[in-house]
Design a protein around this nucleic acid. Structure first.
Lengths: 158, 158
DNA sequence: ACCTGATATGTTATATTGTATCTAACTTAC
DNA sequence: GTAAGTTAGATACAATATAACATATCAGGT
């Protein structure tokens, strides 16, 4: 249990979503891809490609960077993970199958990442941007700060 | 003249701002830092570190990656440039000296980058995020799409 | 002018992140 | 079963970034 949630449940559910999604789309959720996704869901922190590689190598002796990057590419294409640009790392997507603008909230205390969808605000942002004549296609939004849990802990520690 | 603006003027003004800012702060705007800043302002596209290095090497034979990365670090610390996280590249800051949240608008047609400050929207975004208990410290926002100029050109070409 | 502490740069080596390319194995549809 | 397409293995390399230590330069006090 991390921060009051059953993380095994968390992983299981992510894998099941992935399975359903790929089955529905006719894309192949191979053992390698499953393992990588499972590793990424090992925590709510961002996972680095070469750390994943080290883990994968335990069971897959011949694994190379390509092994990982291919799996990551597939998982990204399917919308099962997000790349965290400011960290060169990857995190599980918690809104699988839903069309959504990704806003990542990254806690500087515990390094855990939450995904927030703020469609209302995003619409306002795009409209504001559109006033400068710019037509938005896609966006990368990564917010650093202190998550709710850590804010409480920090306050208590004072 | 690029897109109706005098770019030499653009560069000159950026360098002058940098000079003033560093003088006011007592930080040292050395020849190397000036050259790097000037190169970055060579266009409104993002400049890659190793491309800058190649350029710098012409006049500074002994330049190495460190040479560039140190200058980039200084320029970033002073708020004279922004790092474009999604491109691993660097672009001149066009709001030098002003406290501002950086929103980068990156045109997929011409690769030019504009900086937009949308304080109203940003406040709304932070308030929205705060409702989830998350306290924002800083943010990386990079928007991809089509800039006003290219939108016009694309329409005309149809 | 000279010393000194702080800042900036030189230099070498190495760490980290990501691709290109070619080959072999596997999967699916016919 | 076979061809076409997809996935994975394997080797090499490209691109991005930092560590660590030596040297040079600068600003301020004497």
């Amino acid at each position: 249990m991390i921060h009051g949630h059953n993380h095994n449940q968390c992983i299981t559910s992510a894998i099941q979503s992935a399975e359903r999604l790929c089955a529905a789309r006719g894309t192949r959720f191979t053992p390698m891809r499953r393992k990588v996704l499972q590793l990424i869901w090992g925590s709510h922190q961002a996972a680095k490609a070469y750390d994943l590689l080290d883990c994968i190598k335990v069971s897959e002796k011949g694994a190379t960077p390509m092994t990982i990057y291919r799996a990551l590419q597939f998982l990204q294409d399917q919308g099962l993970i997000h790349r965290v640009e400011t960290l060169n790392a990857y995190v599980g997507c918690s809104h699988v199958g839903l069309q959504h603008e990704v806003v990542l909230l990254i806690c500087e205390e515990c390094q855990q990442i939450k995904e927030r969808s703020a469609p209302g605000v995003m619409t306002v942002l795009h409209e504001d941007i559109a006033q400068s004549g710019f037509l938005t296609k896609r966006s990368t939004i990564e917010i650093y700060g202190t998550c709710g849990n850590c804010a409480v802990l920090l306050k208590a520690a004072q």
